[in-house]
Design a protein around this nucleic acid. Sequence first.
DNA 1: CCAAAAAAGTACCGTACGGTACGGTTCTGG
DNA 2: CCAGAACCGTACCGTACGGTACTTTTTTGG
Lengths: 214, 214
Amino acid sequence: MSSLSTQPEFSPRQNAVLDSALRLLVDGGERALTTAGVARAANCSKESLYKWFGDRDGILSAMIGYQASKVRTLDERAETLTVDSLRAHLVVFARDLLDVLSGDVSLALNRLAIGQASRDGSHLGQMLQERGRRQIGKRAGGLLDAGRRAGLLRFDNGEEAYGMLYGLVVTDLHLRMLLGEDMKLTKQDFSRRAERAVDAFLDLCGTKKETAKP
Amino acid sequence: MSSLSTQPEFSPRQNAVLDSALRLLVDGGERALTTAGVARAANCSKESLYKWFGDRDGILSAMIGYQASKVRTLDERAETLTVDSLRAHLVVFARDLLDVLSGDVSLALNRLAIGQASRDGSHLGQMLQERGRRQIGKRAGGLLDAGRRAGLLRFDNGEEAYGMLYGLVVTDLHLRMLLGEDMKLTKQDFSRRAERAVDAFLDLCGTKKETAKP
DNA sequence: CCAAAAAAGTACCGTACGGTACGGTTCTGG
DNA sequence: CCAGAACCGTACCGTACGGTACTTTTTTGG
């Protein structure tokens, strides 16, 4: 496929079209994402769509690739970690994770990929997985490894440790959001949730007790 | 709506039709779930479908309700809990949870509801949530409360404790399965995963150390 | 055994959508 | 300034699907 690192991706005009398509998907669901609709919303012709992206599935793939290219996860700066700064970094990560997962575009794209998961090859799910989770998982992995190297964390398997952190932070929130549950109230609670989850994670994998929490 | 407790639900014939529809959905995705297809698979007429279920959405709702009515979660028997028996019960629960979430029908229905989540009211997600999570969450809640009453568990909020257990057990497995990731290898690991998750949960919320684990 | 109700089978209708074709318009490069 | 390419707008085609109508068969109940 076309998953090599450095890639021209798409032209600015095509990116603008993909933006329109994402907008359309976010506030209309997959049913609103018709080729005619995308063409109308982006002021381009259907013929151009098919020339650029091949077919409808090509448009969907391009949307996922484009969105992933926009959300670049910053590399955590290597730093002398203390118990408290590690906790702070983990809390920020957890908070960011919740913000990303609850974002309009993320939810819409996940719904789209899940809806297509039953069809044939449908690499959309795999794409979302590779481009999304791998990326943010790498950020977490770096943080966890740094913590372990600093003697602040203790775990055998990095993947498993990341799984614990992820589970404690997200629980079933992602699924409930994907199912359409109203999350206005829960979103106000993301910071507290992130802190509690990180505290629990440190209880499990931390080597030292962090400073007293209220 | 029609969510009162004691309800005749549907006739045996209609349940058979819903079975066919579920089968169709499982191995064809939503696109295979056409009214004509359901009628053909169930040897009934489209007219009967519309008389019984109103419209296509009515069929979808009925499918969820029917499936939920089949998966009755057994009430955990009240018993004198020891540290080890509590752990054993929790492991069984965790294992059951993984089995349910990874089931063909569960995945297909969740994909269906998620796909419809963007459309208008679309109570499908809410239905799945009410009928599914509430049910299994109640079983876990009973178990956790019993553990607390026996002085074996310590937590402030039952919902939060259940969230921890759920997160540790499931992590992002559910999403990955919904996205279509191949889970053949992971499924063989469910038992070990359940045990590790329960051990972590007991580290967090348990009051006593369970007997040594290998 | 028979009439009435229910359901099966089929044919039909309107619409929506993916994909293509084509004439007119704008952009580009020499 | 001009030729050619890229692109827009629109019209068109085939198909698939949700929903309805109608005829024939099966079931039901007295």
